Simulated scan of single mutants.
Amino acid sequence: MMNEQFQQALSIIETLKRHGHEAYFVGGAVRDYLLQRPLGDIDIATSAHPQEVMSIFPKTVPVGIAHGTVMVIERGVSYEVTTFRKEGRYEDYRRPKEVTFVSSLYEDLQRRDFTMNAIAMNEHGDIIDPFGGTEALKQRMIETVGDAAERFNEDALRMMRALRFVSQLGFSLSTKTKQAIIQYGHLLQHIAVERIAVEFEKLLLGPFMSKAIDLLIETNLFCYLPELATKKRELAQLATYSIVPTHRTEAWARFAFVVHFHQKELKKWKLPNHFIRDVLICLKALEHIRSLSDWTVDTLYEYGPYIPHIERIRAACKHDEPHVHLLLKRWEALPIRNRKELAINGNDLLTLFERKAGPWLATMIENIERAVLHRKVENEKEKLKEWAVCNQRRENNC
């Protein structure tokens, strides 16, 4: 019996078939269904050409029409519907130079990367598996469709995808697949860093990340990743950590901390600047937060929003238990959790002291902030004014 997500998408397949076309569920959703894992997006392959798909369904978006893909929107849910196709000669070890629409499901499945992703399912729940994908799932094995060397020469990013699937599923690489990665890993140099970073991030977030990192080292694929060619020892250390990151910031910050990356190295991965900033904040914290006792009032205040990331990384690196819940409770109990919560602001102080703005103002606000944080004065405007005047006269006891 199909699960609910497939049931909801059945109307698309049934509609295509009523109009005389073949249509099947394909790809990762079928794989995850057979593995009894949560499903992501539901993809459909069909013999209908893109213009035919768009003429059949009232709500469509031509998201990748040159490659045969049309987004069909049914009851508020989007589904990618792609015409059966085969791909011609590849360019730059990544993109097919031309795509040819075909009428055969077999030819469409034949072009896919791994056997476990080359499984289709019809509207009755029957499995179509011409390349042994279901057996690969039973063996927990990742193997290419056809010749591994040919698949990786077509699209070198598939090598990173293979290790990403190891991290997500805990599968092993088939011998031929692993040997081909060892032989053709250098082709990864032709792939855009942004695409590599997407796969690497998924690898870092996988529950079997350690296994994937070990394979990254064993196949020497790490040598072709930005700034990692000399980091074999550090990567081996990363593979010893058992705590699985729950957020991309945590994943990248832990990785950067272990392999000693800073802003310069992170930029080589073409990560967004705002994201690099968040990672660098975590790295700064980890330089001096090495044990639970290092979480002081000041460090809790400074790094409050990043506590879950920092504490989980600290615990992983120390093979310790993370104390995220305890630390968040301590942070929430602080008199203030950021400067915006102060009951006084710069304009209040300018009026109080009848002075022009200058460096003194920033110093005064910081002093007030620390006094409130350490409970030397209550966070009430009049009391803060009184404290500010006393502090300015260096008469803290008045």
Rank of each mutant, 00 (worst) to 15 (best):
W331E: 03
K318P: 09
L328K: 12
I289D: 01
H325W: 10
I336A: 03
P305T: 04
R330E: 07
L334E: 07
D320Y: 07
R330M: 09
R312V: 05
R330V: 01
I310E: 02
S293K: 14
Y303S: 01
S291F: 13
E332H: 13
K318V: 10
W331K: 00
P335S: 05
D320E: 15
Y301M: 04
V324P: 03
K329P: 03
I336E: 03
D320N: 15
R290F: 11
H325T: 13
E311H: 09
R330I: 03
W295H: 09
P335C: 03
E302F: 03
L327I: 07
T299W: 05
P335T: 05
A315R: 05
T296Y: 09
D298Q: 11
C317G: 15
R312E: 04
W295K: 08
E321K: 15
H309M: 08
W295F: 10
E321Q: 15
I289G: 05
E311L: 08
T299D: 03
R337D: 03
H309I: 01
Y301A: 03
H323D: 03
A316H: 07
I307H: 02
I307P: 01
H319S: 15
E321L: 14
A316N: 12
L292Y: 15
L300A: 05
A315T: 04
I307T: 04
L300Q: 05
D298T: 08
L292V: 13
P308T: 01
I310A: 06
L328D: 04
Y306V: 01
K329A: 11
L327P: 01
V297S: 07
L300M: 06
P322E: 12
Y301I: 04
Y306W: 09
P308Y: 02
A316G: 14
S291C: 13
V297C: 05
V297D: 02
S293A: 13
Y301H: 02
W331P: 01
L300K: 05
A316D: 09
D294I: 09
L300Y: 06
H325G: 06
L327W: 06
Y301P: 02
E302P: 00
R290T: 14
A315Y: 00
H309F: 10
P308N: 02
H309G: 00
I307Y: 02
P322W: 10
W295E: 06
W331C: 00
L327R: 07
E302K: 12
H325K: 13
V324T: 09
H309S: 09
L326D: 13
V324F: 00
A315C: 12
P335Q: 07
I313V: 14
L326A: 12
H319F: 15
W295I: 10
H309A: 10
Y303E: 02
P335M: 04
L292G: 12
G304H: 01
R337S: 04
D294Q: 09
E302T: 12
L292N: 13
Y303Q: 01
H309T: 01
P322K: 12
E311A: 07
P335A: 04
E321S: 15
Y306A: 06
R337T: 09
A316S: 15
D298R: 11
E332D: 12
A315D: 05
E332P: 05
H309N: 09
Y301N: 00
E332A: 14
P308I: 00
L326M: 12
